[in-house]
């Protein structure tokens, strides 16, 4: 399966680790990801509060370029990009006259590339859990994980059109297919406040603390995200008392598929993610080097 890939700005910086594991896991699942040529920023998390048109045109250009690639749709690993791409797609789908407006504004003729999908959506929905399970070389046995979806991949549901916005299951099911044990908990779709992380860190510390407290209370040994904003924010804005490693879902899929932490960029995480994996017997000797 060949898809247009929209990595998003964080893939060049704070989420370079996610980009690495996303590509590695896609490769293991025979998903061919082709970067949208000359992709531009989708505008998250600022354009939508500044200018409605800008907030539609920025992601809209990427959709137009992706459609021109003639692939089986466009996929992004970032929940914030996913949300902005889907907002623009939804806006364009509502009124065909907007196709002309967008084409003129961005200088690329707009055609519908189909609903933008998240990498999680593609792995669970298109590849399917059976095919995922077939790739598992080292089941994540005994690993208690809190599947944390965050807000932007699911809300509002008429735009995201993916999983249940209050009690999603897709990532829990995926973790189960990898051999891990997803915990039942209440903060699956609570917002971590990433867009305020730089400007109002003290507020964000409260949100992050509540999420991690709830995951710990549910017995989780790690939190698993499908969003670079969530991952970075949970690692950066937590207090000393929180030690839970925060993984991308692609980290754990990659480990289960037998890829090394290094190939997956796991040593680039700020916490101590390797300790937990080692404790669970999931790392072979010599697999612990720097990213």
């Amino acid at each position: 399966m060949k898809l247009a890939y929209y990595p998003g700005c964080s893939s060049h910086g704070s989420a370079a680790d996610y980009d690495r594991s996303a590509r590695a896991v896609a490769g293991a699942l025979a998903l061919e990801l082709v970067d949208v040529p000359e992709w531009n920023c989708c505008g998250a998390s600022s354009a939508h509060g500044a200018d409605h048109r800008l907030a539609m045109y920025l992601p809209g250009r990427n959709l137009a370029v992706a459609a021109g690639m003639g692939m089986g749709g466009v996929v992004t690993p970032c929940a914030a990009c996913y949300s902005r791409l889907n907002r623009a797609h939804h806006w364009l789908a509502e009124d065909r006259r907007r196709w002309l407006e967008l084409s003129a504004a961005v200088g690329v003729p707009y055609n519908d590339v189909g609903k933008p999908r998240s990498l999680l959506e593609v792995v669970v929905g298109d590849v399917g859990l059976e095919a995922v399970a077939a790739q598992v070389r080292r089941p994540l046995k005994g690993l208690k994980a809190a599947a944390y979806y965050g807000c932007l991949m699911l809300k509002p549901p008429e735009v995201a059109r993916f999983d249940d916005p209050e009690n999603p299951r897709s990532m829990d099911d995926l973790l189960q297919a990898l051999g891990a044990q997803p915990v039942r908990w209440g903060f699956k779709t609570e917002c971590c406040g990433a867009s305020l992380s730089v400007s109002r860190p003290e507020l964000v510390e409260k949100l992050v603390g509540d999420i991690l407290d709830n995951a710990s209370a549910a017995g989780a040994e790690c939190v698993v995200t499908a969003c670079p904003m969530c991952q970075a924010n949970l690692e950066q804005r937590r207090s000393e008392r929180h030690r839970l490693p925060v993984f991308y879902f692609t980290d754990l899929a990659g480990i289960a598929f037998g890829l090394s932490p290094r190939e997956l960029g796991i040593p680039m995480h700020l916490g101590e993610p390797l300790e937990l994996l080692r404790g669970k017997g999931l790392l072979a000797a010599g697999e612990e080097g720097q990213g």
Partner: peptide, 10 residues
């Protein structure tokens, strides 16, 4: 201070 999570809209 709205973080844009859209829980309200949902």
């Amino acid at each position: 201070l709205c973080a844009g999570c859209a829980t309200c809209t949902t």
